[in-house]
Nucleic acid binder design. Structure first.
Lengths: 173, 173
DNA sequence: CACAATTAAGTTGTGCACAACTAAAGGGTA
DNA sequence: TACCCTTTAGTTGTGCACAACTTAATTGTG
């Protein structure tokens, strides 16, 4: 049941691109395919982790925050945001929910009253044991080998860097 | 300014994996890197499109919906959701906003009163011209060549299929 | 035909992401 | 010291995503 457009061949699906530059319509079609794929992949990934994390009670973003805290220990909100690429507008309510769940505490720093230090509670630290199985399940479900996962990670990281640079460097675009 | 853990070597960053299976801690670290990268890449992509789409007034998900409608024309909400991998819980309010913006109309189908057909308005169809420049700007900002973009698209699509299959096939996980 | 099961769309509630803004603390310089 | 500027969190408002549920129309089967 092909749902292909009946008008023209589609270089993005045939894998053959004509030597002349693609038309605006062809670019829109490629854009559709690439954007859809990335957007859908991101949400599929979220869905997988939602499922795998179910019995830990964590959401996917909360799991990401816990991964940082498990690995590096307590740190200011600011630094956590740098790791997670999130600002306080997202982190403040996220951390508030995690505090309500008993996973972390937040305390104003004594040295710098502007800064708030995020610490794991005993419960939060203990949750690491229950999350031990998560990465393996996720990698298995992704159908990627370890090597492939590492390579994909590097590639995607370069992509992010390029996108952020484009956004930051040229205010025009 | 390495922020590496001081305890063990990190196969995910050194690019060398020991022959023995990775420890649970190493898997958590790899998981952190891969999840972060994918999640951050997705949001960086969103951010780029948010910027590039600014003067069209479209959000990124709205642009994705418009891409489908521009390419394939009117269709039921159900089918639009299949293209976009979105259910009515997301699509209903999204389409309502797009209708308020004058981009689409929604009409109950006469043949099947359960179904709602989504159609572009003249204004919505005309917006395609103003969006002609979007894909090129996006691809340039991503630092990908056309070939690379196509290949990445295929790879990411396979990943999504694997994830969805894992979610659907085994209710255990 | 009658009635249960299915399907399509919408609604409700929760959480994430981000822009724009506010509040408070810290740092630098005239 | 007094003032301004920067930094750090937090708040507000909007939109997306999804689970769970509701409503209404259609289909299938006895």
């Amino acid at each position: 049941m092909s749902r292909q457009s009946d008008r023209t061949a589609d270089p993005a699906t045939t894998g053959r691109t004509a030597p002349e530059p693609p038309s605006a319509d062809e670019l829109l079609r490629l854009d559709r395919q690439l954007c859809f794929s990335l957007h859908a992949a991101s949400r599929a990934f979220d869905g997988l982790y939602r499922r795998v994390l179910r019995d830990t009670g964590l959401t996917y973003p909360q799991y990401l925050a816990m991964l940082v805290l498990w690995e590096y220990g307590e740190m200011p909100v600011k630094r956590l945001g740098e790791y997670l690429r999130l600002d306080s507008g997202t982190l403040s309510p996220l951390l508030k929910r995690m505090q309500s769940a008993g996973l972390v505490r937040r305390e104003r720093s004594a040295q710098d009253e502007r800064s708030v230090t995020v610490r794991l509670t005993a419960e939060g630290a203990a949750l690491k044991e229950r999350a031990q199985g998560v990465p393996l399940k996720a990698i298995e479900a992704s159908g990627l080998g370890l090597e492939e996962a590492v390579e994909l990670q590097a590639r995607v990281r370069r992509l992010t860097a390029a996108l952020d640079a484009a956004l930051a460097d040229e205010e025009k675009l």
